[in-house]
Design a protein around this nucleic acid. Structure first.
Lengths: 115, 115
DNA sequence: GTATAATATATCGATAATCTATATATGTCA
DNA sequence: TGACATATATAGATTATCGATATATTATAC
């Protein structure tokens, strides 16, 4: 994840699900979207993403389908499921609780809630 | 770490150094302080903390000394070094960048900076 | 007085998240 | 045609944290 992998762990799943909450996407697209939306802070590696997507599909958080680009190339699109949305919701709540707790320890002010 | 260990990783070091920036502490005290300051969100395990403290001492982020409580019991106090303070400063900055990036992806508003 | 719980430090092995490296193939542009 | 971007995939290594376990002291309840 570039910035410093050791600050995250676990948030990657939340971010991926969040992207898919808006629209279906293929893996490579997620890497780019995540980089763009985070102003180049998150540079997710393919070696992290693909096994993660397979795992999420296995856990019924996602479903996938293949789609041709018009020529030879076939992209694998992922779609979030109801289970995935529920999980995303839980993770987002956890994230808020977690950041408030960290900021309390750091002695900073609390911040406006996400959404 | 209770809340969900997979949301952290790496932030534990920052939190410990932050505690020690204010005053010298012994391990068990850090577990309690962290729990208290985070409103019981962080429940750091002894099995996480002690190896972490040893590692930080090895990296010259901390120094330690033993202190008697007046009776048999001897507590091992840790003190942050200049290197440790520098590292804490970097980690705190990273944490701010990271949370802003996550919140950008989540579509929430940015929050007031820590400190 | 004695059992139990809290205090205090420590190590070991397991688990999980992410990385690097590697592989394979297609598309585009100089 | 060669290089680079696009696209997916797996294997093995690293690292953070945990649960379990061990040991010893102190405080409290029965």
């Amino acid at each position: 994840m570039s910035i410093n992998k050791s600050l995250l762990t676990g948030s990657t799943t939340m971010l991926i699900l969040k992207l898919l909450e808006e629209t279906d996407m293929y893996g490579y697209e997620m890497i780019e979207e995540l980089s763009k939306k985070s102003q180049n802070i998150f540079k997710l590696k393919a070696g992290t993403l693909y096994p993660l997507l397979h795992g999420l599909e296995h856990k019924d958080m996602l479903t996938s389908y293949e789609k041709s680009t018009g020529n030879q190339r076939i992209r694998k699109y992922y779609s979030i499921t109801k289970t995935g949305r529920k999980y995303l919701n839980e993770k987002t709540k956890e994230w808020k609780v977690y950041t408030v707790a960290i900021n309390n320890v750091l002695g900073g002010v609390d911040f406006a809630p996400v959404q």
